[in-house]
Each structure stands twice: as structure tokens, then as C-alpha cells.
Simulated scan of single mutants.
Amino acid sequence: MSNQKTGSGSYEQVFAQQQEYIAKRASGYREQALKIYPWICGRCRREFTHRNLSELTVHHVDHNHGNNPSDGSNWELLCLYCHDEEHTKFENFVRYGSTEDTEIKTSTYNPFADLKERMQQKK
């Protein structure tokens, strides 16, 4: 190979930087998660291939991006849409608190409970 110069150094330097980047990225949590888990969204069950793998994201279950255990226990593979929805739910929880306190209970009133008796009274 020739020792041609590029804008950022020789070919060998660029190649070495690229290999370092690939090795560093391969040790990252995304690559680890993609090796551990099947390429399926954990929510909508959409399946992914190499062609659309960029649309599959790693969600941190506890929302702490620094918590990356090698067993993957804090990771969940989610598609872009489900990942966005998960973060929206978390932001709403942080902003508005738990929804359990404000949950509207199902009505127990039945307007037709005594309909038969009413109909008999009119006769």
C-alpha cells in the first residue's frame, strides 16, 4: 500500500484510528445489548435485521445511562417509537407525579337498576 497522506494523517494512522473506534464501540453497551438480546422491540415485538437495525435502541430501565452492568439487566431493546413513548411516560411521571393518586375510578351508578319497577308503576 502506498503511504498517501490524507487530511488527517497517513493511511496507516487513519486505519489505526478507525480500528480503535470500532473496538471501543464494540465494547459499548449498545453492541453488548445487541449481542445478548434478540433484535426484537421489547414492547411492540417488531423484528429487526441488519437493514433496519439503526431503528432499534437500547433503553436503560432505570433511566441511568451510567448504569451498564455487563449482564444487560438494566437494558431493554426498544424501537425508536416505543423508546420515545417510554421516555415520555417517565418525563410525565417526574413532572406530574404518580398517576395512581389521580386515577379516576369506574362509576358504579347504574341508571337502569330499577327500570323494571318503574315500568310496572306506570301501568
Rank of each mutant, 00 (worst) to 15 (best):
N3E: 10
Q4I: 13
G7Y: 10
S8P: 00
G9S: 11
V14P: 00
V14H: 03
A16F: 02
Q17V: 07
Y21Q: 14
I22R: 14
A23C: 03
S27V: 06
G28E: 11
Y29H: 15
R30D: 05
Q32V: 15
Q32E: 14
Q32A: 12
A33M: 12
K35W: 02
K35E: 15
Y37P: 11
P38T: 12
W39S: 11
W39I: 12
W39Y: 12
W39K: 15
I40Q: 12
G42R: 08
R43W: 08
R43A: 05
R45G: 01
R46E: 14
R46C: 03
E47R: 11
F48L: 05
H50Y: 07
R51A: 13
N52P: 04
N52G: 06
L53I: 15
T57S: 04
T57N: 11
V58C: 13
H59I: 03
H60L: 08
H60S: 08
D62W: 01
H65C: 03
H65D: 07
G66Y: 02
G66N: 13
G66A: 13
N67D: 13
N68C: 13
N68W: 01
S70Y: 05
S70F: 06
D71V: 14
S73H: 09
S73E: 05
N74E: 09
N74Y: 03
L77G: 07
C79E: 03
C79P: 02
L80R: 13
Y81F: 04
C82W: 14
C82S: 10
H83E: 05
E85S: 04
H87I: 05
T88L: 13
N92P: 00
N92Q: 13
F93H: 08
V94E: 09
R95Y: 06
D101C: 01
T102Y: 01
E103W: 00
T106N: 10
T108V: 10
Y109D: 04
Y109C: 01
P111R: 12
F112R: 09
A113L: 13
D114I: 02
L115I: 08
L115R: 11
K116I: 04
E117R: 13
E117S: 10
R118H: 11
M119D: 02
Q121D: 05
K122Y: 06
K122Q: 04
K123T: 12
K123C: 04
